[in-house]
Design a protein around this nucleic acid. Sequence first.
DNA 1: TATGAATGAGGTTTCATTCAT
DNA 2: TATGAATGAAACCTCATTCAT
Lengths: 222, 222, 222, 222
Amino acid sequence: MAQPDTVTRILDTAEVLFAERGFAETSLRNITSKAKVNLAAVNYHFGSKKALIQAVFARYLDPFTERFHAALDELEAEYAGRVIPLEVLLESMAKTVLDVPAERNSLKVFMRLLGLAYSQAQGHLRRYIQDHYGSVFSRFSELVRKATPELPEAERFWRLHFVLGTVIFTLSGLDALRDIAEKDYGDHVSVRELIRRLRPVVVAAMNAPLPDAAPDSLPAAV
Amino acid sequence: MAQPDTVTRILDTAEVLFAERGFAETSLRNITSKAKVNLAAVNYHFGSKKALIQAVFARYLDPFTERFHAALDELEAEYAGRVIPLEVLLESMAKTVLDVPAERNSLKVFMRLLGLAYSQAQGHLRRYIQDHYGSVFSRFSELVRKATPELPEAERFWRLHFVLGTVIFTLSGLDALRDIAEKDYGDHVSVRELIRRLRPVVVAAMNAPLPDAAPDSLPAAV
Amino acid sequence: MAQPDTVTRILDTAEVLFAERGFAETSLRNITSKAKVNLAAVNYHFGSKKALIQAVFARYLDPFTERFHAALDELEAEYAGRVIPLEVLLESMAKTVLDVPAERNSLKVFMRLLGLAYSQAQGHLRRYIQDHYGSVFSRFSELVRKATPELPEAERFWRLHFVLGTVIFTLSGLDALRDIAEKDYGDHVSVRELIRRLRPVVVAAMNAPLPDAAPDSLPAAV
Amino acid sequence: MAQPDTVTRILDTAEVLFAERGFAETSLRNITSKAKVNLAAVNYHFGSKKALIQAVFARYLDPFTERFHAALDELEAEYAGRVIPLEVLLESMAKTVLDVPAERNSLKVFMRLLGLAYSQAQGHLRRYIQDHYGSVFSRFSELVRKATPELPEAERFWRLHFVLGTVIFTLSGLDALRDIAEKDYGDHVSVRELIRRLRPVVVAAMNAPLPDAAPDSLPAAV
DNA sequence: TATGAATGAGGTTTCATTCAT
DNA sequence: TATGAATGAAACCTCATTCAT
């Protein structure tokens, strides 16, 4: 038959619906009926709804991890022990992020899923991601550490998450924001266009001056 | 009686549970049983689960809106027609955000709710927030516009949301991040401390150089 | 105050809603909110929903009974022992039915209620009507008996109900039927006009020839 | 297994309970517990309570429609273009009505349901019946029109509904009426017996003289 | 006399999951 | 390998009624 097999149909449908509505708001019935698949098929093929959610993530994160490791391998070979500049690291990550879902033409979905992973993660998902993909993030963090030797450890940690927040928040809420931007400014942006806009902001954020060291005089500082 | 009335007990319980688990994952039973209140009380006092969600938001946003308008009034009076600098505007907002829930000692909850509003908003909530609190945000945007005349309209729009993403993402995921930071760096941060760290990053992000104007050479531009 | 008191407002609203939707489909909330009356008022003034239903009927049936008794008194006086013709009896009843609700201008509601009493009566209502208004119907039946001596007892009983069915069915479904009649035949009828049409039919029905006496050969007789 | 399948058990139980108590007064719990079936089974097999109600009707009306069309086909063939007399038409309808539920031995239930359809129809049911079974009724009306050429259009419309009221009202309230008849006149009637009694009445009603044409002189005309 | 608050029961519907085939 | 049927739990909501004031 020309149409993809059951497992693929379920995954394709599930990722779209999850991205649109979230996990709890998407029922297995929604998925199976839209995928034109038997209701019991999800439990048969995946075991449970939780396992399906993880499988949806794995389909993006497995190739991402593989490619990102490869990209970092290349960079390390290229720089041969010398420090890899922050911009280069960020660019490498961005390129990988853009590449992975390109095959499925659904970067937006990927980003929404990442956003959901943070905002809706029911524990099992957070654990799953940590267990399966923590290593590549650790490796990247270590390289960022070398690229920003002037930053205190804790400061770097926080700034990486500041930046992560910007990226995930923006890309996962893209549709809504894009609608507003287009209506108000006639500005229609693609994901790639948006990433172009993100680059200088992210770099500036990472390189921002350190805050005043006075945690006591807060009322005035805020 | 010493214990607060039914409506308050419901709201107090609901906001905590919503913040912890999200809207769909929190049932009215969860709320009413934890609040030691009759199951039907929610529908009696609020009409529906949707209306309860909105009421939870209103309890934060109503005072926030009022105070923020007042703070902006003060600033406009103080600057008497002159441009209010970006840092001052941001500081004013931060101060208001910090003040409002202080009475209830739950900034974290407020931020989690804001995060949910973006990631889980089921339409009705987004509409509600837009309708009820859009005006104060518009006013703030307009002041930011005057404070950053060099930024193109669209660019400013996006950067404001980049920054919003940073703030909401960080503050709403605060607990998890704080745990990691403490374990790995012995760095125990308070919310105020975190905001101190956010300040230079946010300012730098808003003032970052404009991106290259080349939307076509994307592969290289990331 | 110009507006009627609580009890009246409840009754006025209840009869309309009952007539429109039926008893079970009309909640006390529907009634009290439309009547702009406190929810507890029904239970306070009437004791229960059942009692309210009975009160709604009583407001029509009490004056009806009284007047019908009076009308029959007059007829009996006028005919002084002689048989009162069937047409006269029917006409008297029709006149009374038309008169009673005239004050409230809602014959239709009265008829709908009568229809409901038959089709939806939950026992308590059937009993209530039987207990309170059985006597006047018995008196009328007895007069009809005298007016149609040629009819076997059982036959008369059934024919009275045949006719009752026609009247109640037609008048209680009047709105829907009138819409169809108007659309299809440009025939806009008033209640009085309809009753004019009913008269010869009812008389013909009562005077129809007796059925073949062959209850055994049914399959052929239908 | 000897016992019928779930769908049939639900339908069998539902039609009895609906007929006894009405739609709103019969809960799905009533049905499923009496049918010894899981509560969710109704929604699984029918989708909603409304759909179940429609299915209950369809089980009667589908075969009725089919057979009635067939019966009219036969009559038209037999009369070969000549007018089919009113009595023949009515007899044909009565025969079909009696035949259909015979298999299920529950004419009474069928009649109660028809009565409910008129008195309790919540819109959705009236629409459903109109959509699905309007055509056979139209065909019958047209034949009646030819059989009663002397009747004005509007008059025929009303008389058909007068008669319909008699039939539905009597047959749907049969149990109560039968009890009374038996108690008062020792007259125990079967449905078939009752239909025998209805025949001359219905014919007489349809053939009644036209009413006086005086819609103005109402008080006297009643 | 009247009412706002509250309650327990029960309504329909949807859920993820299991089972027999 | 796959599926239609079925299930128990739990979801949100509405109900008539009661109670303290």
